[in-house]
């Protein structure tokens, strides 16, 4: 064993597993056979977890954050209520997370996904693909344009419908911050009937996934704005290492 006096890499705050969904949530039936039955093994964070891929802004195409146009034929655009979704990616200490890749995907205005395994009778929109991405600015901010997705029925219990939602995938600075979640819309009554929403154990947790309608940021005669902040795991700084301001 070669012990050194190197400073350990600064780790992330422990994940609050009581705040996050359990693996086994029988009201969401697919989780029954897809949930580990043994306890997770707690391990110290190493370089393998505190590092992670960081993507450059040069990977983005000019329409990557505009779902109304990025799959549309020239001169056309997707059908549905036009929206802007904006917010910040923050860590638990409240700091903006810069250069975070945020990917999102969603159904069209009628609740239909462009996917070969999807068989819902609502039609596809020929001008809507349903995927987009962006990278956060220095202050952690991001934004994209889309159309309001529709609710859709799914085979779980006899009559389950997903609320309107947008899926989000976020890369922070370390692989331990990797997160996939879903954003819901203020005022949707389906939120409180959904067995997938219901896996989140605390009501405040569910509220944190509901985007607020923001009339001040709404562009008149164009698109309504929704604000959605995303929080990734916080990080301890190693004092004096690279953040002189400390934590």
């Amino acid at each position: 064993m070669s012990l050194t006096n190197q400073r350990p890499a600064a780790g992330f705050f422990a994940r609050d597993r009581g705040w996050q969904p359990e693996a086994l949530t029988p009201q969401y039936k697919t989780s029954v056979a897809r949930s580990p039955s043994r306890a997770l093994l707690t391990m110290p964070q190493t370089l393998s977890e505190v590092t992670g891929p960081v993507f450059g802004h040069n990977m983005l195409g000019p329409l990557d954050n505009d779902l109304t146009l990025n799959f549309a034929k020239p001169g056309e655009s997707a059908i549905g209520p036009r929206i802007i979704v904006y917010g910040r990616v923050l860590d638990e200490a409240g700091r903006g997370v810069p250069n975070a890749l945020v990917e999102f995907w969603q159904a069209n205005a009628g609740g239909r996904y462009r996917h070969k395994k999807e068989s819902y009778i609502a039609p596809l929109d020929p001008n809507f693909g349903g995927c987009g991405r962006c990278i956060t600015a220095e202050d952690g901010s991001y934004e994209f344009r889309s159309i309001l997705p529709g609710p859709y029925p799914w085979p779980n219990r006899g009559n389950d419908w997903r609320p309107a939602h947008i899926h989000f995938s976020i890369f922070g600075q370390g692989f331990a911050q990797r997160l996939i979640t879903q954003m819901y819309f203020e005022g949707d009554p389906l939120i409180w009937k959904c067995p997938i929403v219901d896996v989140v154990p605390h009501r405040e947790g569910i509220e944190s996934l509901i985007a607020a309608l923001d009339m001040e940021s709404t562009v008149p005669m164009d698109a309504r704005a929704y604000k959605f902040d995303i929080v990734l795991r916080g990080r301890r700084s190693t004092l004096f290492e690279n953040r002189l301001e400390g934590n």
């Binding site: 996050q20 638990e92 997160l179 979640t181 995303i230």
Partner: peptide
């Protein structure tokens, strides 16, 4: 402190 956004299925 803020709380981490709750995860949801992909």
């Amino acid at each position: 402190r803020l709380k981490e956004s709750p995860s949801q299925t992909a």
